[in-house]
Amino acid sequence: MASSTAPTQNTSTLRARYQWRVVDIVVASVVAVAVGVVFFAWSAGYTGIAALTGAFPPLAGLYTGGWLIAGVLGGLIIRKPGAAIYCEVLAAAVSALLGTQFGLTTLLSGAIQGVGAELIFLLFLYRRWNLGVALLAGLGAGLALSISENILYNALWAFEWQLMYVVFASISGVIIAGLVSWLAVRALAKTGVLSAFASGRTADV
């Protein structure tokens, strides 16, 4: 089985680009779990901030970017269709298992937010993974989050407050989920732990 160029190289590279390998599935799962654990710790130290935003609830939108990291980070690392949705839903499931107030709706929220990031990656046909795409994915997730939260939970807020919530969540999504994830993937690539992934082998992340 000496290495050779397969005759059907086009189809095989296409498949390599879009099909999930076992290592993709397992690493996506564990990254989602790890992000879930990190944000469980984050929430534990959040009590003080929650009290502050209690006076002006739309400000809480600024904090929400943290919950969006799983999808953007997962998408940037795995680079496979569905990675953003899968990671975001699984991270949501972990936070549900570790204890959260939102019950089963966490899974729905996770799916919606994952879709927000996923759509951006899809828009670029899973071919572009630069900073701009990462920031847009963060924005997509932030918009998905804030619009769905406005419909599901903040439905009775006056419209201008809802709008502010969207703005704050989008900023948070771009900076925390987009920028931080992109920086994290770049640093991860340098450590060599991503050697099994295209994201770890290409320098132009």
Binding site: M1, A2, S3, A16, R21, V23, S195, A196, A198
Partner: peptide, 13 residues
């Protein structure tokens, strides 16, 4: 792993 993860020469069976 696959071709993306490395390159082999010779045979191993």
């Amino acid at each position: 792993g696959d071709e993306g993860q490395g390159e082999q020469h010779g045979s191993l069976t």
